[in-house]
């Protein structure tokens, strides 16, 4: 029996995984920035633009949570494939959230950039 999350020392690999997982919500909101997409398109977008390899079973529950939180809305659209697809789009609250998260990301990344600058020069 294992309870979720046993604290243990993190290897750099694990740290990277945590970092990526923490960005998933922002990545999905950002993928929807330019317009509505259905689940499989969101998955492909994340893989091609961010190399976030998301497990397929995760993105659908996550989308339904974002919807319950009012950050995205959904609509069914008939497709030429013969079945309807569920499209997601950002709501006003979702756009605001994406903006806020992107601003935090930019601030954090530029301040870390300053701090990490010397590391790039020193290690050849």
């Amino acid at each position: 029996m294992k309870l979720p999350a046993v604290p243990e020392p993190e290897s750099p690999d694990k740290w990277e995984v945590q970092l990526r997982k923490g960005c998933l919500e922002l990545a999905i909101l950002a993928a929807l920035w330019e317009g509505k997409l259905y689940g499989l398109e969101i998955l492909r977008r994340l893989e091609s633009d961010s190399d976030l390899i998301v497990s397929e079973g995760t993105v659908y529950p996550l989308l339904s949570r974002l919807k319950a939180l009012g950050l995205v809305r959904s609509e069914w659209v008939e497709s030429d494939g013969g079945h309807p697809r569920k499209y997601y789009a950002l709501t006003a609250a979702g756009k605001k959230r994406a903006h806020e998260m992107a601003a935090i990301w930019a601030r954090f990344s530029s301040s870390m950039g300053k701090l990490l600058g010397p590391l790039g020069k020193g290690h050849k």
Binding site: L3, P4, Q18, R20, K21, L52, S55, G57, T58
Partner: peptide, 16 residues
């Protein structure tokens, strides 16, 4: 909240 989040995160990414 924390437990549910831990569970969700543990399954979020696919093994490369």
């Amino acid at each position: 909240l924390w437990s549910a989040r831990q569970y969700r995160r543990s399954r979020a990414l696919r093994q490369k």
